[in-house]
Design a protein around this nucleic acid. Structure first.
Length: 739
DNA sequence: AACATCGGACTTTCAAACGG
DNA sequence: CGTTTGAAAGTCCGATGTTG
C-alpha cells in the first residue's frame, strides 16, 4: 500500500483540470499550483479521484461532477486545554486531601473559567451563516413594539423572561446569562447537526464550487437586464441600484462569491429564464429554455445548500429560496411546491420578516426590503396553498407586516437613516403595493376566513382597518389612490390596471358565492344573482384577455400564468348549461372564445388531463346551445374555441361520441403534465389535475384566497366519479353557485 | 463479478503557540 | 518574525456489503 501517495492531489500539477480547479489557500500568494480537491462524489464515496473535471468516476457512473470548495478551516478547539486544567485542579485536590505538598498553579480555578469562556466563543466557529445577530434572533424585550393598530404581534422571549426572574445568587456568579445560554444552545445544536441536516435539496458534506455553472459575464448582464425588465417590477424583492454593483463585482471573481449572494445570482438567472420564451432563449443564449432553466435552478439549489439555507438568518438567502421556489412553480405540482414554500414560510417567520415589531428594528432600507419580500411571498404562498388545497396558507390575519411603501427604487438606499415618504403617484413599486393592498383587505375579510380558518375571525376583527369596510370601498380606494395615476401606455401600468380590476372581480365573485348560498326568495332575486355573478365572471375574462393579448406585457405573463381565470369559466358554463340561449349566452361565448385564443389556442399538445377537464366543461355547454337553437330552426357556426377543443379531443384519441369523460382520464399514475404549455400555469401529476384546476377557479385572482375555495371545490369534485363533474350537478353537490 | 460503502491510516494545510 | 506544533481537512486503500 503506497500510503505515501495518499493525500497528494495527483491531478494538481500538469494534468490539472481545465475548469473549476479549487484553490485551497486563497490567501497564499506563492506560485504553487492551486490544489485541486477531489470532486464531491469521490470525496463522499472515499474513492480515488483523478481530479479532472469531470472526473473518470463521475463519467463512469453518469453523475454530475461537482468540484469541491475547501471547507472553511475552523479555529482549533480549546476544549483540551480546559479539560487539562479541570483535571489538574482535581489532582491538586487529591494531593491536598492526601497531605502531599506541591506547588500549585496560581489560581487554576480562574483559568478554568477563562478557558470556558473561550470555548463558548469558539463554539460557532464554522458557521458561515452565523452572521451578527441583527436583532432578528432574539428581539430585545424593551422593543416589544405595538403595531399601529394597537395589537402587538411580537412574541415575548422565553429566554429573556427567564432572565427577569434570575435570582441574586446567580447574578453574582459567573454563570452566563440566559440570553448567552440561548445562543450557546443554538450553537450547540448547530455543532450537533453539522451539515447533515441539509435534507431538502439533497445532502453533502462539502461545499460545491459552482463557478462553472455561471453563464459568461455578458450573459450574466443580459439575464440581469431581463430580470429587471420582466421579473423585478412584479415582485420587487431585489433592490436593483444596490445590487447591480455587487453583481459586477461578483462577475470579476465568480469563485469568491459568498454562498448567499451566489444563490441570489442563480435565482435571478432562473427567474429571468422563466420569464423568457423558447425563442428568446434561443436568440439571446443559443440554448433551449429548458436547459437554461434546469442549469440555473440546479446552481441555485447547490448555492442554497452551500448557504445552509435551512439555518439562514440572511434575508437575501431567503429571497433566493423564494425566487427559486417561484422558478420551479411552473414545472412542479402545487402540492410539492406548497410544501417547499412551507419551509420558506417557517424560515421567514423565524427571521421575523412577517413581524413589524422586529422589522422596525432594522434600518429603513432593510425594513422595506423585508416587507416587500414578505408580501410577495405571502401572496405567492397563498396562491400555491390554494392550488394545493392547503387552507392555512400565509394570507391570514395573524401577522402585522406593513404594506410596502409606494416609493421608487431611487428613494431607497442601504443604511439610509430615515424611511422615505410614500409617493402620491405611481412609482416603481405601485404594482406590488396594489397587490398588497388587496391582500391586506382579503386576509381580514369574513368571506376569506370562512373559507380558510373561521377560528381567526376574532383576530381579524381586532385588526381590521375600518377605513376599508368592504370590497366596494377597497375598489374605490385602489382606483383613486393608485390606478388613477397609472398610464395605460406604460406596459407595467397597463398590467397593473387590468390585473387589479380582474382580481377585484374575482373577489366579488367569491364574496357573492359566500353571501348567497343558493337559496333565493324569488325569481327576481335569483335573476339578479345570476346577473351579478355573470357580470363578475365577464369582467374577469375581459381583464385577463386584455393583459394576455397585449404584446407589451408579454414579459410579465410568467406571473399571471399562475392565475388562470377558471372561476369565470366555471360560472359562465354553469349558467350556459342552465340557459343555453339566454341573454348572457352571446356575450359569454364571445368572451370565452377571446380568452381561449389568448390563453390556450397556441398549445400544440392535447395530452393534458387539465385539457380534458377544460374540454369536458366547455363542450356540453356548446352542445346544449346547438340543440336549443336547432329546435327553433337555427344553425350556428361553432366558435373557434369549440372547434379547437374538439380537435384536441380527437387528437387525444377521444371521440366526443365516447362521452366527454374517457375512462380513467384522471387516473393515470405518473402522467405529469406541464400545464404551462396550456397556459394553465402549473404542471401536476394527473391525479391532481382536477383539484389544481379547481383551485384555479378558487383562486383565479390575486393569490388572495389561499385554500379558500379550493377545499370547497375539492369537496365537490375531489372524490367524485367523472360523470358527476357535470356543471349541471354543481348546485346539488353542496356549494351554492347561485342556481 | 461489479459496484458501493465506509472505517480508518495516512498526508497536507495552516492557525496558534513558541522562542529568539 | 521564523519555526514548531498539532488539530482540522483531505485522500483513498481495502474490507465488507449489495446488486444483478
Amino acid at each position: 500500500m503506497s500510503r505515501a501517495a495518499q493525500g497528494m492531489p495527483e491531478g494538481s500539477s500538469s494534468d490539472a483540470p481545465l475548469s473549476s480547479p479549487v484553490v485551497s489557500a486563497p490567501s497564499s500568494q506563492s506560485s504553487k499550483p492551486p490544489r485541486v480537491l477531489a470532486c464531491t462524489l469521490c470525496h463522499q464515496r472515499k474513492v480515488k479521484c483523478d481530479h479532472n473535471f469531470p472526473c473518470s468516476n463521475c463519467i463512469k457512473s453518469g453523475a454530475e461532477c461537482v468540484p469541491t470548495v475547501p471547507a472553511r478551516r475552523r479555529p482549533r478547539r480549546q476544549i483540551a486545554k480546559r479539560d487539562l486544567l479541570k483535571r489538574l485542579r482535581r489532582y491538586e485536590e487529591l494531593l491536598l486531601r492526601s497531605n502531599i505538598n506541591f506547588e500549585s498553579l496560581p489560581d487554576s480555578s480562574s483559568l478554568v473559567e477563562t478557558s470556558f469562556s473561550t470555548e463558548v466563543d469558539h463554539g460557532s466557529d464554522d458557521d458561515e451563516n452565523s452572521e451578527p445577530v441583527d436583532g432578528t434572533e432574539s428581539p430585545s424585550p424593551s422593543a416589544t413594539a405595538k403595531s399601529e393598530r394597537g395589537l402587538s404581534y411580537e412574541t415575548k422571549s422565553f429566554w429573556h423572561a427567564m432572565n427577569q426572574s434570575r435570582d441574586d445568587i446567580e447574578n453574582q456568579s459567573n454563570c452566563p446569562s440566559y440570553e448567552d445560554r440561548e445562543t450557546m444552545v443554538k450553537k450547540a445544536w448547530e455543532q450537533l447537526s453539522g451539515d447533515n441536516i441539509l435534507l431538502i435539496l439533497g445532502s453533502r458534506k462539502t461545499a460545491a464550487n459552482l463557478s462553472h455553472l455561471h453563464p459568461e459575464p455578458i450573459q450574466i448582464f443580459r439575464l440581469w437586464q431581463v430580470y429587471l425588465d420582466n421579473v423585478n417590477p412584479l415582485i420587487k424583492v431585489i433592490h436593483p441600484p444596490s445590487t447591480q454593483g455587487r453583481i459586477i463585482e461578483a462577475m470579476g471573481n465568480l469563485r469568491q462569491i459568498s454562498p448567499p449572494f451566489e444563490a441570489l445570482l442563480f435565482s435571478i438567472y432562473s427567474m429571468a429564464v422563466l420569464s423568457l420564451s423558447e425563442e428568446d432563449c434561443q436568440t439571446f443564449f443559443d440554448c433551449p429554455r429548458e436547459y437554461l432553466l434546469s442549469r440555473y435552478q440546479y446552481g441555485c439549489q447547490q448555492a442554497l445548500l452551500n448557504s445552509r439555507f435551512l439555518r439562514t438568518n440572511d434575508r437575501e438567502c431567503l429571497t433566493s429560496l423564494f425566487l427559486y421556489s417561484m422558478s420551479i412553480g411552473l414545472s412542479t405540482d402545487p402540492v410539492t411546491l406548497s410544501s417547499i414554500l412551507g419551509i420558506t414560510h417557517r424560515i421567514a417567520r423565524r427571521i421575523g420578516i412577517h413581524n413589524e415589531g422586529i422589522t422596525r428594528k432594522h434600518d429603513p432600507f432593510e425594513a422595506e426590503m423585508r416587507r416587500r419580500l414578505w408580501w410577495s411571498f405571502a401572496l405567492f404562498d397563498d396562491r400555491m396553498g390554494g392550488m394545493a388545497d392547503f387552507k392555512s396558507a400565509s394570507l391570514g390575519p395573524t401577522w402585522d407586516c406593513s404594506i410596502p411603501l409606494n416609493v421608487n427604487d431611487s428613494d431607497l438606499w442601504p443604511h439610509m437613516k430615515q424611511a422615505p415618504a410614500a409617493r402620491g403617484f405611481s412609482t416603481d413599486a405601485t404594482h406590488v403595493v396594489v397587490r398588497a393592498q388587496i391582500g391586506e383587505f382579503i386576509r381580514h375579510s369574513k368571506f376569506h376566513l370562512d373559507f380558510t380558518d373561521p377560528s381567526l375571525h376574532a383576530v381579524a376583527r381586532d385588526a381590521q382597518r375600518v377605513e376599508v369596510p368592504d370590497l366596494a370601498a377597497l375598489e374605490k380606494m385602489i382606483e383613486e389612490k393608485y390606478l388613477k395615476f397609472c398610464d395605460p401606455d406604460i406596459p407595467l401600468h397597463f398590467l397593473t390596471i387590468w390585473m387589479t380590476r380582474g382580481h377585484m372581480a374575482k373577489h366579488r365573485l367569491v364574496e357573492h358565492y359566500w353571501k348567497h348560498d343558493g337559496s333565493t326568495p324569488n325569481e327576481a332575486a335569483a335573476e339578479a344573482n345570476v346577473d351579478a355573478t355573470m357580470s363578475h365572471a365577464f369582467t374577469m375574462l375581459e381583464c385577463d384577455t386584455k393583459v394576455m393579448t397585449q404584446p407589451t406585457t408579454r414579459g410579465y405573463t410568467w406571473l399571471y400564468n399562475f392565475y388562470f381565470p377558471f372561476p369565470a369559466y366555471l360560472q359562465i358554463i354553469k349558467e350556459l348549461r342552465r340557459c343555453p340561449v339566454g341573454k348572457h349566452a352571446e356575450r359569454a361565448w364571445g368572451l370565452m372564445d377571446e380568452n381561449f385564443a389568448a390563453r390556450l389556442s397556441t398549445t400544440s399538445t392535447y395530452h393534458s388531463p387539465l385539457f380534458k377537464v377544460f374540454a369536458t366543461t366547455v363542450l356540453p355547454a356548446w352542445d346544449a346551445r346547438e340543440a336549443a337553437l336547432k329546435e327553433s330552426g337555427q344553425t350556428l357556426t361553432p366558435p373557434a374555441m369549440v372547434i379547437e377543443v374538439r380537435k384536441g379531443l380527437v387528437q387525444m384519441g377521444q371521440s366526443t361520441q365516447d362521452g366527454y369523460f374517457p375512462k380513467g382520464a384522471d387516473q393515470q399514475p405518473g402522467n405529469g403534465t406541464n400545464m404551462n404549455d396550456l397556459g394553465f400555469s402549473v404542471s401536476m401529476p394527473t391525479s391532481l389535475g382536477i383539484n389544481g384546476l379547481l383551485s384555479e377557479m378558487s383562486n383565479g385572482g390575486h393569490g388572495s384566497h389561499g385554500g379558500t375555495e379550493a377545499g370547497i371545490f375539492t369537496g365537490l369534485f375531489g372524490q367524485t366519479p367523472p360523470e358527476e363533474m357535470n356543471p349541471g350537478n354543481w348546485p346539488a353537490m353542496g356549494w351554492g353557485f347561485g342556481g
